[in-house]
């Protein structure tokens, strides 16, 4: 009886250790992700269609890089335009983000792309480091 109990305790400890190790195991993976917005009524692609959808989207030519001067002008005008908008509009934008984030973020458990917001205005204004240097 005693050995049975000891076996149970040992097995439980081993199971817990295995589970803990699985939880903390290093994760080294890579994947591709795509986002699309569909017209009303359009049928969404099935889960198995990733390869076709990815090939379709990845083959589209990327936009031409915008010159640093044009980016600076756009950022400046955007900042001035947005400064004129009311706080209500800003709150509405956040609400819209909350709604959109529900469907876009890869998780319905979401509010806003936190780090995207954090990084967005500081480093990569539409992809340019240079644009933030001035």
């Amino acid at each position: 009886m005693k050995s049975w109990k000891a076996w149970c305790v040992g097995a439980s400890a081993l199971l817990l250790a295995t589970l803990a190790a699985a939880q903390n195991a290093p994760v080294r993976i890579q994947y591709d992700q795509l986002r699309e917005y569909l017209n009303p009524g359009a049928a969404p692609p099935p889960p198995e269609a990733f390869a076709q959808e990815y090939a379709k989207l990845a083959s589209q030519p990327p936009p031409q890089p915008v010159s640093a001067g044009a980016q600076r002008a756009e950022i400046t005008s955007s900042a001035l335009a947005m400064a004129a908008e009311s706080e209500i509009e800003q709150r509405f934008a956040l609400m819209a983000l909350g709604i959109a984030g529900m469907g876009l973020g890869g998780s319905p458990l979401s509010h806003v792309p936190v780090l995207g917001k954090q990084i967005g205005g500081r480093v990569l204004a539409k992809g340019s480091i240079e644009a933030n240097e001035n």
Partner: peptide, 10 residues
């Protein structure tokens, strides 16, 4: 609005 998010090539 309908949004689609797909991940693959894992």
């Amino acid at each position: 609005v309908t949004s689609v998010l797909m991940r693959g090539n894992v």
